[in-house]
Every structure is written in structure tokens, then in C-alpha cells.
Design a protein around this nucleic acid. Structure first.
Lengths: 343, 343
DNA sequence: TTCCTTTCCGGCAACGTTACCGGAAACGTT
DNA sequence: AACGTTTCCGGTAACGTTGCCGGAAAGGAA
């Protein structure tokens, strides 16, 4: 079906030289006559020769591919991270192989197998919201696969990690709500297995404590990242007689579900309820009202992760894993009240 | 650095059989004793053996990989298409290799080279907005690479194509504007090299003609897909003494730029200016006001494209390329006035 | 002239796997 | 008992490339 692509053999025969010579010419090795080299390159170009990376990989035991495994990519967050990864990986001569697990542990395992089978040299990954056992990952690591984690971090796993200061971001977000006059702040929380969720939760709690607010666990709603659940939880909060006057959401998609729900209940944002998100999905600026949110440096996360992986690849087994924490920025838009007084 | 992964050799030696036998066991060939087979499989599992797909691909001259090459994936459109592709490709035993060109022709060429080098067996692609010469694609096709195009289509290229009925979608969108009382409808157009842009433009023109509206070429603004350009064009339109009372945008990102611009000018949507988008980016429902838009069946596009490619792979050289056109739906939200009268 | 160095090239094994071929052993038939 | 058939397995050549090793030819120095 496919007409065969030309190989170094074809070039060698036409030029009446050996395949070794062709090979040398193609990967500009030193031991070659400039004229022969030019002849080979010219013919290669004319035949539109594409080196067979499969054969090269097999021979060299090196694929020059790093894998990126993300739980989803319909929201802008992960694509942006991947862009950052590609930027530094490509610059270093690596190709990037992308996998997405659709938030399914089973698919994640399957993708990981595929990555191993393809002999990627390292992996940058964010686990799914379902991932609560790590044997598949640890097994890959035991085989020597360097793995860098980001966004979805768990303590049980070893390896370099890139994360944002979720705790501090959450703390500042909640503090902002307090400064704008909110007195009863609920939290739409993420999956418990993710350190990220716990850190944001802790930031929320500590900000309340720092300002001598009581902690009411009944208005901390686990929304996980399941579509529709945030809406349901928000409705429950709104039904309460002691309805909150502010919501701090674990991320922007969650916040936007809450936003829709609040508006369906005929309540005004931010007059009756303030709302803060996390992550800065690009459209959070376009919702009505524009969402106050904690911005993450998505591109930079990818770049940093890739740099860590490349360093590990270069330094080999005596590389000691490193955790890099990037800072967030609170972007104040219209879903929260103006600040009453300077801090 | 990487501790070597086990090979069929390791298994063969431990079990004191030949590698042929191990190979047979692993890819359940017929000629093998069930007991030996079980022994091999058990040991393989114990060693956590992962077949080296690189070696297999080289030997079989078959990678079981199909490539997907898209111009970008920070907007939800392409990721959703890819999801559809993965669905049917994986079900058929193929893996999917993703490339993104960042709307750059140069990167597109580079990605295409990489795909060829990786010996993908087929390609599903949408060209970038920059792509105005096709030699790189045609060259790949001449080598026998089956290519299915979607979204960004050009007539010059041969191959199966999956597209939505842009003309009809645009026609209905503009007709809707007319029916809601708009009398001067401008168009924010896309890159001219894309058939998609031209079809939407034609739908716009024909809808106007069908209702005996004059065509004013000075309010057809080429915004291409360049960030910021739609905003600039919109501003120009607003500055005119004969300012339009409606905008039909070539896609949703363009529409949202226009929306922001209109609101910055203190104009009300839809009271003073109506606005219709195209594509249904997921957040178009959340902007203020929610955007009336022409919805595309993104997942289905991916599935159909993959099915076409698989058929071509199966049928071989006597497969005759096919163009499938999917229909769109006009989703009426709040950026246009209510319909005045039944049609 | 002889010897040594440099320049350039070809031969060959290997990477891990599959597919074909041939053959030994076990079984069944007459 | 002799023969054919089946069952199972091992040997081996490829797939396209790289990298080492050895060697021929050409050049330089004495």
C-alpha cells in the first residue's frame, strides 16, 4: 500500500559507495570526503530521503523522545503546559509524545505501557483524578524511567515535581474575599487524593483562621473534578438558610459551574455572592462577571518540568529529584467586590 | 542510566527455550504447547516485560501509528476532534501521535517530517493559517502516505476530507440576523487561503442576496486568525458613521474579540449590535452575553476522519478519496435579538 | 626509495523482534 | 513394522541503521 521510502541502501547503490559511507555523510561524521558527502546529501535531497528513526532508535538504544501524559486537554491548562514542554524539549533535540488519559486510571495505565513500549526516555506527567494507586508509575520508575510530576502531585511518589504554591494562592484568594467584606466563605474543593486539593483547602482554612473566622466543615463541599458536581454542590449551599456570601472554588471550571448556578438562582455576583476561581482558564476573563482568579504560569510550568527532566537525563542516576514551586498571582476582576481598605 | 528493560532473550534463557518459542508465546501464535506458553507468559509478567515496539515496527515494517497534525490546541476545538480520532483509532488497534504546529508553516513542515520519519501509516491533519503552499504535503502523499484533511481544507489538495457545511451554517446565521431585524450586517472574515473562510463568506453573501440586501465589501473585514486583528477590525467598523448593527464572525475566538471591543465602546449587545460566532468554543456560552453561534460536531469530525483513514489503510491504493460533510446547528443565545416573526 | 601518517572508505556485527523453514519426537493408520 | 501426519521447537535471515575495525591509497619526511 505504502510505496517504500528510500533507504541508505538505495542511495549507496546509485552512488556506488557503501552504506557506511552514506551513513557517515548523512550524520556528518568526520571521516568523509567533502565531495562524496555532497553527492550523498544531494541525492538524499533529490530522493526526499527521510531517515528511518525506528531503525536509528533500535540501533542506538535511544529514542530522543520524552513523553507527556496528562489527564485531559480540552481545557486550556494542559495544552499550555505542553507548549512549554515542547519549547524546551525541541530546543534540546527531543521530540515530545503526548498522551491523554481522559481522567481515567485505566487509560492512564494503558498510556504508560505504550510510553514504555515506545521507549520514551523520560516522562512528564499529571495523574488523573481517579489515580489513587501508583504501582504502575512506581514500576516504571523502578525500571529507570525518569518521571517529573506536575499539577497533580502526591507525596507517595518520588521524583522531581513542579507545582505552584497552591497554599499561598488559596490563602491570598480567601484573604481577598475577607478584605472585600465577605463573612461566610464556602469552599468548592477538589479530589482528596491530590495534594493540590489539600493545599488549596489548607490555604482556605488557614486564611480563615488567620482572620479569626470560624471553620464550618459543612460548607466545604467536595466537588472533585466531576462535571456537574460543582453545580449540585453550589445549589445545596444556596438552599441553606445560612447561605454563604462567598465561594472559593478549587479551579476555574468548578467556579464557572458555580457561577452559572448562582445566576440561575437569580442572585447577583458579586453583590450577593462573591466568587473566586483558581487556574485562570483563558475564558474566565470573558464570563459574566469576569472571574477573579488565581493565575498559574502554565507555560513556565511546562518549561520548568522539561528542564528538570533534561537535567535528570543528562546527570543520570546520581541526579537527586528536585521540587520547584512557582508562584501564583491573584487577578482581581469583577466577581468579587472592590477592596474596602488597604491591608 | 536507564536500567535495561528485559527482552525475549532474557525470558528465553531463563526458561531454556529459544527466542522463537518466546516470541510465539507472546503473540499467541498457533504452534506452541500450552504449558510452555503459560510458562513464558508468567515469566514475562513477573519480569514486567514490555515488548519493544521499536524492534517490532522495524521488523514488520508497520508502526500501527496514525498521526494527527493540528495548527494549535489551546482552543477546545482541536482537542475535541483528537478525542474523536483516538476513540476510533484505539478501538482499531492504532495508536495516535499528536503534533501541533502553532499556526506556523515552518513547524508544520517540521512536524510532517517527523511523522514521516516515525513512519506513521496515515495522517489526519488541519493545515495552519499560514499554509499557502502544499509541496510538503503533496510530497508525503506521493510517497504513499494517506492523508485525511479536516476543518482547514484547500481544493488544491487531494485526499479524503471531513468538513462541516460552512456555507449552510453561515447562511443560516446571517438569515437569523436578518430575521431578528438587523439591517446592516458586517462580516469578520478568516484567512482567504482556507476554503472554510471562503464558504462562510459565500454563505454570508448569499444570505444577504437571498433577502435582497446589498453587499457592501467595505464591511467585510479580513481578520485572519491573528490575535488582536479582530479587535482592530471591529473598532474600525464601530468608527464608521454608517456603523453596522450586526456582526457575523468567522469563528468564536474572533467573535469574542469583537464582543470585548464592542463593550469597551459602551455599546450594548444585542440592543445596538448583534453578534454571531461560529464553532461553539465551550466558553461561548459563558461570555456576556452568551454568544449565539454555529455549533460544529467536533467529536464526530474526529471519528469520521479516523474512519475514513482506516478505510483507506484497509482498502489500499484503490481507495478513492471521499469528502464527508457534517451539518451544523445554530445555537441561539443572547447575543442576538429574539426572532420577530416565524419564518 | 622506504617508512610513517593521514584520509577515506568498506565490511561486519549488533539493536530486538518476527516469519519462514526444517526437523525431531510423538502419535495414528494400515 | 513401516509409514504418514501432527505437534512443537530451534535456527536463521531479515528490517534500516550505526559504530567499530581494518585496510587501501595518497601524501609527507627522511
Amino acid at each position: 500500500m505504502r510505496s517504500k521510502q528510500p533507504t541508505i541502501w538505495d542511495i549507496a547503490i546509485k552512488l556506488n559507495v557503501s552504506i557506511s559511507t552514506v551513513s557517515r555523510a548523512l550524520r556528518n561524521a568526520p571521516d568523509i570526503n567533502p565531495d562524496t558527502k555532497k553527492a550523498v546529501l544531494d541525492l538524499a535531497h533529490e530522493l526526499d530521503y527521510q531517515p528511518n528513526t525506528i531503525a536509528t532508535s533500535l540501533r542506538k538504544n535511544k529514542t530522543d523522545i520524552i513523553g507527556v501524559l496528562v489527564p485531559e486537554f480540552v481545557h486550556a491548562y494542559f495544552p499550555n503546559v505542553i507548549l512549554g514542554v515542547q519549547e524546551v524539549a525541541n530546543a534540546a533535540g527531543y521530540k515530545v509524545m503526548i498522551g491523554q488519559s481522559n481522567e481515567s486510571l485505566e487509560i492512564e495505565k494503558h498510556n504508560l505501557q505504550a510510553m514504555l513500549s515506545s521507549r520514551v526516555e523520560g516522562l512528564i506527567m499529571a495523574i488523573t483524578r481517579e489515580t489513587n494507586e501508583y504501582e504502575h508509575i512506581q514500576s516504571a520508575q523502578r525500571k529507570g524511567l525518569p518521571v517529573v510530576f506536575f499539577n497533580r502531585i502526591v507525596d507517595e511518589l518520588q521524583g522531581s515535581k513542579v507545582l505552584v504554591d497552591d497554599y499561598r494562592g488559596a490563602f491570598r484568594a480567601v484573604e481577598h474575599l475577607i478584605q472585600t467584606g465577605c463573612r461566610r466563605i464556602a469552599h468548592l474543593a477538589g479530589p482528596e487524593n491530590l495534594t493540590m486539593s489539600r493545599n488549596r483547602l489548607n490555604g482556605y482554612i488557614d486564611a480563615l483562621k488567620a482572620h479569626a473566622f470560624p471553620i464550618d466543615e459543612t460548607i466545604i463541599m467536595p466537588c472533585d473534578f466531576v462535571e456537574g458536581k460543582a453545580r449540585f454542590c453550589t445549589q445545596q449551599l444556596l438552599n441553606r438558610p445560612d447561605r454563604p456570601d462567598a465561594l472559593f472554588a478549587v479551579n476555574d471550571p468548578t467556579a464557572i459551574e458555580a457561577l452559572v448556578c448562582i445566576q440561575e438562582n437569580g442572585l447577583s455576583i458579586p453583590d450577593e455572592i462573591s466568587l473566586v476561581g483558581f487556574s485562570n482558564a483563558p475564558h474566565s476573563a470573558f464570563v459574566t462577571p469576569p472571574l477573579t482568579s488565581v493565575v498559574q504560569p502554565t507555560n513556565e510550568i511546562g518549561r520548568v518540568a522539561a528542564r528538570l527532566l533534561l537535567r535528570q537525563l543528562a546527570e543520570g542516576p546520581d541526579f537527586v529529584p528536585e521540587t520547584q514551586t512557582l508562584d501564583t498571582t491573584l487577578v482581581i476582576r469583577k466577581s468579587t467586590q472592590p477592596v474596602l481598605r488597604a491591608v
